[in-house]
Simulated assay, not measured.
Amino acid sequence: MSDGKRAAVLGSPIAHSLSPVLHRAAYAELGLTDWTYDRFEVDEEGIGPFLSGLGEDWAGLSLTMPLKRAVIPFLHEVSETAAAVEAVNTVVFTDDGRRLGDNTDIPGMVAALRERGVERVERAAILGAGATASSALAALSRICTGEVTAYVRSEARAAEMRGWGARLGVPVRTADWSDAQQALSAPLVIATTPAGTTDALAPAVPEHPGTLFDVLYDPWPTPLAAAWSDRGASVVGGLDLLVHQAVLQVEQMTGCSPAPLAAMRKAGESALTQ
C-alpha cells in the first residue's frame, strides 16, 4: 500500500493520450492502489495557473505538445537531458515543493532501440525536423558514431537541425524532403513526421533495409512500417517509445524501480486494438 498520490498528463489536444492507460497499469502492477493518473486539456497559457493550483498530493506530470518548452520557466530545475533539447516531458514534485523537469523521450528512444538490438550505428537518417526530431538527434548523440542526415522541407528547419546537431555534438547534414527516398538506405532511419507524411516512401523501401524507428503508434502500422516489415527488417514503433519513456516517468514519480514494462506494453497494445 501507499499514501495516495496524484499524477496526470497535460497537453492540447489530450483526449487521444495513451499515458493514463500505461501509468494506471503500472500502478496496478506495483500495488499503488490509491494512486491516480488523469488527463487534463492545458495549453501554453494555462500551464502556469495549473501548476500553481496543485496541492501536496501531486507526485508528477507527463507533458505533451504544446507544453514541453512552455513549462520550462515554471520549473526550479531542468535536467541536462531536457535542457539539451529545450523540451521537458516529465515534471516531478519533491517533498519540499520543488518542480524538477526532465526528458524521458531521449533515454526512452535509446532503450527502445536497444531492446531491438540496436546499440550502435555508423550513420543515421531523420525524416522531419520538429520537436521529436531534436529528441531523436539527442538519442543519436548516444549511439551514432558518424553523420546524421536530416530530411526537411525548409531551409529554416534545416538550419534549426544543424544548430541542434552543433549543440549536441552530432555532425548533421541536411537534405531537401524531395530527396527523402535516399534516407531509406541508412542503417537506422527515424521517422518523426505526422501521420501520412511518409506514406509515399513505402514503395521505395530497399530490398535489405536497416532498422526503422517510426514514432507514430496510431494508426499502426504506417505504410512505411508495413513495407519495412514485409522486407523482414526490424521496426521500432511509437508504442515502443511511449512505453519506454513512460517506464522512466513511473520510476521517477513513484520511486519504484523497475517499473513493469511488460504490463504497461500489454495495456497499451490492448487499448490500441479496441
Rank of each mutant, 00 (worst) to 15 (best):
T81I: 15
T81L: 09
A82F: 07
A82I: 02
A82K: 00
A82G: 09
A82L: 10
A83G: 10
A83V: 03
V85Y: 03
V85E: 01
E86I: 07
N89K: 06
N89M: 15
T90F: 05
T90I: 06
T90A: 11
V92M: 11
V92A: 12
F93H: 01
F93Q: 03
T94F: 08
T94A: 05
T94D: 01
D95I: 05
D95Q: 13
D95T: 12
D95M: 09
D95G: 12
D96R: 06
D96G: 01
G97F: 02
L100K: 05
L100I: 15
D102M: 01
D102T: 01
D102Q: 08
T104Q: 04
T104L: 06
T104C: 09
T104N: 07
D105K: 04
I106M: 09
I106K: 00
P107H: 08
P107L: 07
M109V: 06
M109N: 04
V110E: 04
A111E: 13
A111S: 11
L113R: 00
L113P: 04
R114W: 12
E115H: 15
E115Y: 14
E115R: 15
G117Y: 07
G117Q: 11
E119D: 11
E119K: 09
V121S: 02
A124L: 11
A124R: 01
A125D: 05
A125R: 00
I126M: 05
I126C: 05
L127R: 02
G130A: 12
A131E: 15
T132S: 15
T132I: 14
T132H: 01
T132E: 00
T132R: 03
A136S: 14
L137M: 12
L140N: 00
S141E: 07
S141Q: 09
I143Q: 02
I143T: 13
C144E: 08
T145S: 15
T145K: 10
G146N: 11
V148R: 04
V148M: 02
A150Y: 04
V152A: 14
V152W: 06
V152C: 14
V152Q: 03
A156Y: 13
R157P: 03
A158M: 07
A158P: 02
A159E: 15
A159M: 08
E160T: 09
E160N: 10
R162N: 06
G163S: 15
G163Y: 11
W164N: 07
W164M: 12
A166S: 14
R167H: 10
L168Q: 08
L168I: 06
G169E: 01
G169F: 10
